Amino acid sequence: MISPKIENGDLVLKDGNLVMISGDEELIQSVQSTLRTRKGEFFLDPEYGLSYDNLLGKDLSEEEARDDIIEALSKDERIGAVKDISFVKEGRTLKVSLIIQKQDETELTIDEVDLNA
């Protein structure tokens, strides 16, 4: 897939043109976008995104949060499996790092996606 590059929520322009990305860079951006979007928030696809129900509050259930992340990412046909998920809670901020296995069985590491949970 080819997508416009997004940094800090903004489209990236270079010399007045949209910067486009593909391959692993686009897949990583897609995973980050899925995790940062609350399920039901995107009006064109209410099933897109991550359920934040198990991410909010003081008592984070990592097991339930893992299940929610795997469910959200399983909708992307390019992802074969989620191999590892780790959480870092800093105050009110929750960051997730993960390793995904693509359908071709290569792995990608995605570091510290800020969920603002």
Rank of each mutant, 00 (worst) to 15 (best):
I28M: 05
G80A: 10
A117H: 12
K39P: 00
G23S: 04
E26I: 03
E112F: 03
D114T: 13
L108M: 10
E77A: 10
D104N: 14
T106G: 13
P46A: 04
E77P: 15
E41F: 08
L11M: 13
E62G: 04
L60H: 00
D53F: 09
E7W: 08
G49I: 00
K102L: 05
Y48V: 00
S61A: 10
E71R: 12
K5D: 00
D76W: 02
V113N: 02
I110W: 02
S86V: 10
N8Q: 15
K102P: 01
T106S: 14
K39E: 00
S30E: 10
L55A: 05
V113C: 12
S61F: 07
K39F: 00
Q32T: 15
Q32E: 15
R66P: 01
E7M: 12
I85K: 01
L73W: 01
Y52K: 10
K83W: 04
E7A: 07
E41N: 10
E71P: 08
K95P: 09
K58A: 12
D10L: 14
S3L: 14
S86L: 10
I21A: 10
V31L: 01
L98N: 02
L50H: 03
F43E: 13
L98T: 01
I70W: 00
L94R: 08
V82N: 07
I99L: 15
S61P: 04
F87H: 04
K75P: 02
D111F: 07
P46L: 06
L73Y: 01
P4T: 07
D53G: 07
D45W: 01
I79P: 06
A65P: 08
V19Q: 09
S74W: 10
G80D: 03
D10V: 11
R38N: 11
N8Y: 15
E7L: 10
K102C: 01
A81K: 12
G57C: 01
M20L: 08
R36Y: 01
F43H: 12
G91S: 08
Q29K: 07
D24N: 15
S74I: 02
R66F: 06
L56A: 05
D24W: 05
L73H: 06
D45G: 04
D114L: 06
F43W: 14
